[in-house]
Write a protein that binds this DNA or RNA. Structure first.
Lengths: 129, 129
DNA sequence: TATGGGGCTTCCCGTGACAGGAAGGTCAAG
DNA sequence: CTTGACCTTCCTGTCACGGGAAGCCCCATA
């Protein structure tokens, strides 16, 4: 199977799949003509990575998860640790965004949004506010 | 005032302030020796940008907001539009992260996290799940 | 057999918003 | 005069790719 069909199956752009090969994440063999040939196991790995990425795991975490996935002697504790760490990052980001949202919402609600220059948003950003 | 003191006042790394100069966001004058000299208005602008950045505005938005801030003939509607657009981005990101968090929490809760290889997290990421 | 239009390859540059670090000029104190 | 703390520019790296150029390769059709 060539790269464009693999891309369809995995739900990833071909460019991304080439990138994953370049960084040694998923490295399908090559045909004599140099084309990448995706075997079922390669598609499997690509789809696994696509899902992990869609959950926000970094490439490094995807690499570790893929190794664990392919290692029958793994301990689920190792997987869980990666996921919990990522969950912590997500919670931190959520808190940061929620705080931004709260402040911004207040400012936006206070702003008339008309032709006059008076603006609570700018006042809120100004140093001496 | 030199850059390190300006950095302290604005709560930004000196490196970041040089970057802002490079992209023409805040461009303080130079002493004869080439050192940047920060006037009160430069500190003002830097602090304004620092606050806007901390609310998640992009550099481009900060540039626009700073222009509006310094333009007494502005319409608050223009400011509000930028802020509302950013608020939309924040909400989208919040939704995305909340969805990730929900899925991840389910998976993590289902995982024993012990020495055994059986792992619902990996199962959840696997293609045939 | 020629040709045309895909699909495949590598290579290089750009993204956003900086951080790290090297090489070298400047300044005030001892 | 030297030391050490500043300051400067310049180059590279980050993260996870996207865009596009230049050049093979393959298949179908005329």
């Amino acid at each position: 199977m060539n790269i464009s069909e693999a891309a369809r199956h995995a739900g990833l752009p071909a460019k991304t799949i080439r990138y994953y090969g370049e960084i040694g994440l998923v490295t399908p063999p090559r045909d004599p003509n140099g084309y990448r040939t995706f075997r079922p196991r390669d598609l499997h790995a690509l789809t696994f990575v696509a899902r992990a990425r869609s959950l926000g795991f970094t490439i490094g975490e995807c690499r570790a998860l893929l190794h664990l996935y392919q290692d029958p002697t793994r301990a689920s504790a190792d997987v869980k640790e990666i996921a919990r760490s990522h969950l912590g990052r997500i919670d931190a980001k959520l808190a940061e965004l929620a705080a931004m949202r709260a402040t911004l919402t207040d400012l936006v609600d206070a702003c008339a949004g008309d032709q006059r220059p008076d603006c609570p948003i700018l006042k809120g950003l100004a140093p001496t506010a």
